[in-house]
């Protein structure tokens, strides 16, 4: 009796007609693609997006690269090259001091200019009067007060390619390979402006630092895209703002250092 009641109860339970029709038509429905195929398109789109983003982040001819290094110990460690037994050390000349009267060529080396034609800068200084502020940006760092030349020797500004013996742990460090300075572009700091001059074309670009002028003891380095090239500007201010030492390096050469 109990089983009959249960059987009758269960017997009455059936899927609806609509459900049966759906089930019978299930085979005719297009089969879903395998997971890998379903994911292929979104993954390709994501890869493309990442590629585009990475490309956008890289410096463009109009843009300025981000500051590369400062004179802080961390940046110093970062830029310190790997030991290269055959690396020839080529110390650069001693930094020159700009007296503020006229732009001077601070450094000269024998590195040839091999890049393509320079892109004319957006602001060209005429050489007379106050130079126009440039929209181009250059980061200025104030990492440490009272830096000593031994703290930025690696930027090529102290006239020595080796760390001073007073540098703690210097005897453990490998001899770095110094990049050659850029010779066909000069840079001077004058009245709160950085004035870049392309010696090949005579073009001048001025960067306004009057909002945040250099102060005695400032030192640091920054990347800049100028005259169609990616340069690293390393500067150090002495006891006065007229005692500014500026060195230019080609970023590609820095990157080429092993």
């Amino acid at each position: 009796m109990a089983n009959e009641r249960l059987n009758a109860y269960y017997e009455a339970q059936r899927p609806s007609e609509a459900c049966m029709v759906r089930l019978c038509n299930l085979e005719q429905r297009p089969r879903p693609k395998p997971l890998i195929l379903r994911l292929a398109l979104p993954m390709a789109a994501a890869c493309l997006l990442i590629l585009v983003l990475v490309t956008q982040i890289r410096p463009t001819p109009e843009g300025v690269t981000a500051p590369l290094a400062t004179s802080t110990p961390t940046a110093r460690e970062t830029l310190k090259p790997e030991p290269t037994p055959s690396a020839a050390v080529t110390p650069t000349q001693s930094p020159q001091v700009v007296d503020g009267s006229a732009p001077q060529i601070p450094v000269e080396t024998t590195a040839p200019y091999t890049e393509g034609p320079a892109i004319p800068p957006e602001n060209e200084g005429s050489g007379s009067g106050r130079p126009k502020p440039s929209p181009e940006y250059m980061g200025s760092d104030k990492p440490k007060p009272e830096p000593s030349p031994s703290e930025w020797w690696w930027l090529g500004g102290a006239g020595s390619s080796e760390p001073p013996s007073s540098d703690p742990g210097a005897e453990d460090l490998p001899t770095p390979q110094m990049p050659e300075e850029v010779t066909d572009i000069t840079c001077v700091y004058e009245n709160g402006f950085l004035i870049f001059t392309d010696l090949n074309t005579g073009e001048t670009v001025t960067i306004d630092l009057t909002d945040e002028p250099l102060e005695p003891g400032d030192s640091g380095a920054a990347g800049i895209h100028i005259f169609g090239r990616d340069l690293v500007v390393a500067l150090s201010v002495g006891e006065t703002t007229e005692d500014v030492t500026i060195c230019l390096f080609d970023l590609s050469e820095l990157e080429a250092i092993p």
Partner: peptide, 18 residues
Amino acid sequence: EFQTIVERYSASLYRLAY
């Protein structure tokens, strides 16, 4: 055939699910 399987087992499986 799929349709045969559906017709043969759908009621039984429906009851189990219910």
